[in-house]
Simulated assay, not measured.
Amino acid sequence: MVTNFPLRKPTAVAALCAAAALLTACSVPLDVESAENANDPRCADMMVVLPDELAGHSQRPTNSQATSAWGDPSHVVLRCGVPIPGPTTDPCVSVNGVDWVAREGDPAWTLTTYGREPATEVLFDPTAVASSTVLAELAAAAGRIPADRECTSVDQDLELP
């Protein structure tokens, strides 16, 4: 049995192709340098559950493994597989069970997970997004990488030999 399919008008096909080209042009991948350990399988566990929207900004494509960004221009950039932070005097905050070392910069701040291997780094503009929002909205994804340490404070009781 032969079925006759209606032919599409060339103008409709051309319009559809033009629209697709415009949409593709709007989502040019952001150039983000991947971290040294971006190929760690635990990064993949986190990357697949990142939010589509962060602090009111849509996720956008990046051109390297274990990276993500939100906003156009980018207001938040994430890289998994960065070096694990060691002891530091920088503030360490815990949000929804995930510890982060915070480094204030000008203009960007850097937040790095603490006690998780591999570590995840988040760079963001504090004038465009609140750190509390970024940390709360990324906690579930960052928590996919198991913690083996947590932040301590000089105010905490430590057991010394």
Rank of each mutant, 00 (worst) to 15 (best):
V122S: 04
P85Y: 01
T88S: 15
E137I: 01
G105T: 12
W100Y: 14
L135E: 13
R149Q: 15
Y114G: 01
A142H: 00
T120M: 09
R79F: 07
G86Y: 10
T110I: 13
E137L: 00
S132K: 15
I84L: 12
A140K: 06
T89D: 14
S131R: 15
L78Q: 07
P85C: 05
P146E: 11
W100T: 03
V82P: 08
L111K: 06
R79I: 05
V93I: 12
T127E: 13
P107W: 06
E104T: 14
T89V: 14
T127M: 12
S94F: 05
G97P: 06
A128D: 06
T133L: 13
D99C: 08
T152S: 15
S132D: 15
E117F: 15
W109R: 12
A119W: 02
L123D: 13
A119L: 02
E121F: 09
I84S: 10
L78M: 14
P118N: 09
A139G: 10
T113L: 01
V129I: 13
G97S: 06
P107L: 02
L123N: 14
G105M: 09
E117Q: 12
A141T: 03
G115H: 00
P83H: 05
A108I: 09
G105N: 11
V93S: 09
A136L: 10
C92E: 03
G81Q: 09
L111Q: 10
R149K: 15
T113C: 03
C151Y: 05
V82Y: 08
A147L: 07
E104W: 11
C151G: 07
V98H: 00
E117L: 10
T112G: 08
R144L: 08
L78H: 05
P126H: 06
T112L: 05
P107I: 03
A141I: 02
R144E: 15
D125Y: 15
T120V: 13
S131A: 12
C80I: 03
P83R: 07
A130C: 02
T89H: 10
C151E: 05
A128Q: 14
G105Q: 11
W109N: 13
T88I: 07
A128I: 11
S132W: 11
E137F: 00
A140T: 14
L135I: 04
T88V: 08
